[in-house]
Structure formats: structure tokens, C-alpha cells
């Protein structure tokens, strides 16, 4: 555990909590892509199956349980409790164009050809592109609420901090995981355009326009 890893995890947690609270307090999921949230729920489920097979630390277990729980809670709020406010017409990204290639790639390029390892690889690849339905939705409607941009910023910052974590671990521990690093770079790059807009336009203005 180093400072980049810890702040990355906390940033990820902050993003998840911000989104849950935003939907809960406003009693609306307008502007939020339910498809992205389903993809994140799939990501956490397929990655954290090792909760059943191995114990790493109390921190690790608690965070995994919180991430999974919050992901399903978010999906529940969007598709059940506040379904009436869900903007399905604008959430029109074709997720099969992500899930099918990602599934194929995880079978082809992985650390070990075993079910658990393939599912873990699938989750890493899927996470790197899971935000695309959300970004697509914002580009389609042309605006996002300020709180939604804070969510996206924390979510992007989390993977960027993980990149620094991997540089740190490579130098001080000789640790590196090529699959996670390549997917993490892709994931961070997808946020670059958004980071730029967030800093230059989204900081104080409201509502946020692209």
C-alpha cells in the first residue's frame, strides 16, 4: 500500500458515494447512464469473485464488499426506485459493442486460461471502457449537472492515481501487471478530454456544457 494506491481507492469510493447520494438526495437519475452503472456492477462482480477463494486483508475485503454493494444499490435506484426519472432515450449506447469484443479479448489475452482468471481479465478490460455510455450520453445531451462532473472527475482520477501506484510498485517492489497497466492507461486516456473540460469550464460554472 502506498499513497497513490490509497488515494486512488478513496477517490474511487468518493465517486461511487457521490453518485449514490446525488440520485438519493435529488430522487432522480436524470443524466446518469444506467448502462454504465450496469457495466460497473458486472465489473465488480466478475473481479471480486476471489472474495470466495482468497483473503488478502480486512481493508481489501471491506472495500470490495462496499464497491459491490454500492454498484448494485445504484443500479437498483436507476432501474427500480427512480425508474420514472431515468432518461433511457438518451442512454442509447450499444453496450454489446463493448461487452462482446472485451469478452473475446479476455479469452485471448490473459495471465492464465482458467475461469476465475478470465473473468478477472474481463473485468479489467470492461472497466476501462465502462464509462463510455455515460460519456456518450453527456455528448448527446450536451450537458451534465455539476455533481455528475464531480463524479466523473473522481472516477477518472482514481485510475490515474493507480497509474502512479503501478510506477511506484514497479520501482520499489518490482511488481507489474501488464494487463492492468495497459487497460488502466486506456481507461485514463478516455477521461483526458473530460479532465480538460472539467478544469477549464466545469469548475465554477453551472450547468456544465460541452
Amino acid at each position: 500500500m502506498n499513497v497513490f494506491r490509497l488515494t486512488g481507492d478513496l477517490s474511487h469510493l468518493a465517486a461511487i458515494i457521490i453518485l449514490l447520494l446525488k440520485i438519493w438526495k435529488s430522487r432522480s437519475c436524470a443524466g446518469i447512464s444506467g448502462k454504465s452503472q450496469i457495466l460497473f456492477a458486472i465489473v465488480f462482480t466478475t473481479r471480486y469473485l476471489d472474495l470466495l477463494t482468497s483473503f488478502i486483508s480486512l481493508y481489501n475485503t471491506c472495500m470490495k464488499v462496499i464497491y459491490i454493494g454500492c454498484a448494485y444499490a445504484t443500479v437498483y435506484l436507476i432501474y427500480a426506485k427512480f425508474r420514472a426519472t431515468y432518461d433511457g432515450n438518451h442512454d442509447s449506447f450499444r453496450v454489446e459493442f463493448l461487452v462482446v469484443p472485451v469478452g473475446g479479448l479476455s479469452v485471448l489475452i490473459n495471465h492464465d486460461f482458467s475461469p476465475l482468471e478470465i473473468l478477472w481479465t474481463f473485468s479489467i478490460y470492461l472497466e476501462s471502457v465502462a464509462i463510455l455510455p455515460q460519456l456518450f450520453m453527456i455528448s448527446k445531451t450536451g450537458e451534465a449537472e455539476t455533481i455528475t462532473t464531480h463524479y466523473l472527475f473522481c472516477l477518472g482520477l482514481y485510475r490515474a492515481l493507480y497509474l502512479f501506484n503501478w510506477i511506484w510498485r514497479f520501482y520499489f517492489e518490482g511488481f507489474f501487471d501488464m494487463i492492468a497497466i495497459v487497460a488502466g492507461v486506456v481507461q485514463t486516456v478516455l477521461y483526458c478530454d473530460f479532465f480538460y473540460l472539467y478544469v477549464t469550464k466545469g469548475w465554477f460554472s453551472r450547468p456544465y456544457r460541452l
Binding site: 494506491r5 495471465h111 511488481f175
Partner: peptide, 10 residues
Amino acid sequence: CLRTPVKDEL
């Protein structure tokens, strides 16, 4: 196949 690293990250 690549070497499988320890999965201690989230």
C-alpha cells in the same frame, strides 16, 4: 500467457 501477479489491488 503472461505471469500471473498477486491480486491485492481493487
